[in-house]
Simulated scan of single mutants.
Amino acid sequence: MGRFNGEWVCSRDENFDVFLKKLGVGMIARGMAKTLTTTLNIQSADGQKFIVKSTTGPKTREVTFEIGKEIQESSTLGKPMKGTWNLEGDDMVGVFMSVDGCGDAITIKRTIQNDQLIQKMQIGSTECTRYFNKK
Results as ranks from 00 to 15, higher is better:
Asn114His: 10
Asp100Arg: 09
Met97Ala: 15
Val52His: 02
Val25Met: 08
Cys10Ile: 09
Ile112Arg: 04
Ser75Asn: 09
Gly2Ser: 13
Asp100Lys: 04
Val25Ser: 06
Val95His: 05
Phe50His: 04
Val95Asp: 07
Asp104Asn: 13
Glu70Trp: 09
Gly47Gln: 06
Cys128Ser: 11
Ala33Phe: 06
Phe65Leu: 08
Leu117Tyr: 00
Ser74Asp: 14
Leu87Thr: 12
Glu62Met: 11
Lys22Phe: 07
Ala105Gly: 03
Ser75Gly: 14
Leu40Cys: 01
Asn15Ile: 03
Arg30Ser: 06
Thr39Met: 00
Gln122His: 05
Ser125Cys: 04
Phe16Leu: 13
Arg110Met: 01
Met92Val: 06
Gly31Trp: 02
Leu20Ile: 03
Leu20Asp: 02
Ser74Ala: 15
Leu87Met: 15
Leu40Asn: 00
Gly94Met: 07
Met121Phe: 01
Phe96Thr: 02
Thr37Gln: 13
Ser44Leu: 04
Ile112His: 02
Gln48Gly: 08
Asp46Met: 05
Gly31Asn: 10
Leu23Lys: 02
Asp91Arg: 12
Gly6Ala: 06
Thr37His: 04
Phe50Glu: 01
Val18Ala: 15
Ile106Trp: 04
Glu70Gly: 08
Phe50Ile: 02
Lys135Trp: 07
Lys53Val: 03
Asp46Gln: 02
Ile112Trp: 01
Asp115Gln: 11
Ile108Thr: 13
Leu87Lys: 12
Thr35Asn: 13
Glu62Ala: 10
Pro58Tyr: 03
Val99His: 04
Leu40Lys: 04
